[in-house]
Amino acid sequence: MDWTLIFSRAVEAGIGSEAIIYALAAIGLNVQFGYTGLLNFGQAGFLAIGAYAIAVTVATFGLPFFLGVGIGLLLAVLMALLLGIPTLRLRADYLAIVTIAAAEIVRLVVRSVALSDTFGGTDGLQAFSGAFYDLNPYPPGEYGIPPIIGFDNRSMWVLTVGWALVAIASFILFMAMKSPWGRVLKAIREDEDAVRSLGKNVFSYKMQALVIGGVIGSLGGFIFALSRSAVQPDLFSTDLTFYAYTVLILGGAARILGPIVGSMLFWLLLIFIGTGMEEAVNSGAITFITVNQVGAIRLMLVGLGLMLLLIYRPQGIFGDKREISIDAR
């Protein structure tokens, strides 16, 4: 077994573009679900909007890259408003239903045959990230700590921008959640009627949380599109949202570092287990499964791990035991 390969792939996944994308998606969910208690099951839709905004603006219409970024942020805000206005006055589960449907609508629209001239249908779009990589300050070559970590200069640029976005978003949220604004959000998560009776415009705060979480999700979409230099509609199916929830719960909801560490750990473990099993099968250490079955078994093990986590440590890695135990009283 090639242990260097196993560790190298696992560590690279733990700090790679996947970890960034899911960290951003989970940070957005953290604002909505972790702090405000809004069940947004359509985070994949916000990522899709971010990714497609860049792709369509540049590849289809030939407009500047940064205009695409601006359009992506604007559309994420609009999408949040559109979802929130009818549903935020209703009970929380309505938002869950509407968001999951809205994300699917976004995916089905961009993959539709009728609009394939604009969105590229199921093949998606390519050739839009040139302007982004033109800004790359890293000269061509290999970077990292051999033999474990090694990225080429394009990946380095994505990782730099991606982790910078993660850091900026987390810092802003850290400041916001410490402020009286964050206190109102946490109170809404507990009991919105109580907050209303204290003279706070609950609807407005929930909308703000939805918008901020959606915009952070769209940042994840930007990185998704740029790291692959391509977008395909089926990358933004509901799995993405549920993985992001997994990441959030693993790290600990309502904690600033929760989604970041959760995402890194999730990808590290996922790749470690996957590559580990593949290597074990290839070297003959495991004989009762084939390489083709590794992918499914890996997901089963992740599911098992999550169940154990939720049973024995529901607050995740960073959560506060006291906050949980009060509810279970």
Binding site: M175, S179, P180, W181, I212, I326
Partner: peptide, 28 residues
């Protein structure tokens, strides 16, 4: 409707009106 996962003092602070930091941007 005590907000059970907030501390007693945070519950009290929440009752105050027109705290400027309850705006997102000013809160930062």
């Amino acid at each position: 409707k005590a907000l059970s996962k907030l501390t007693v003092i945070e519950n009290m602070r929440l009752g105050a009106q027109s705290q400027k930091g309850e705006n997102f941007f000013r809160g930062l």
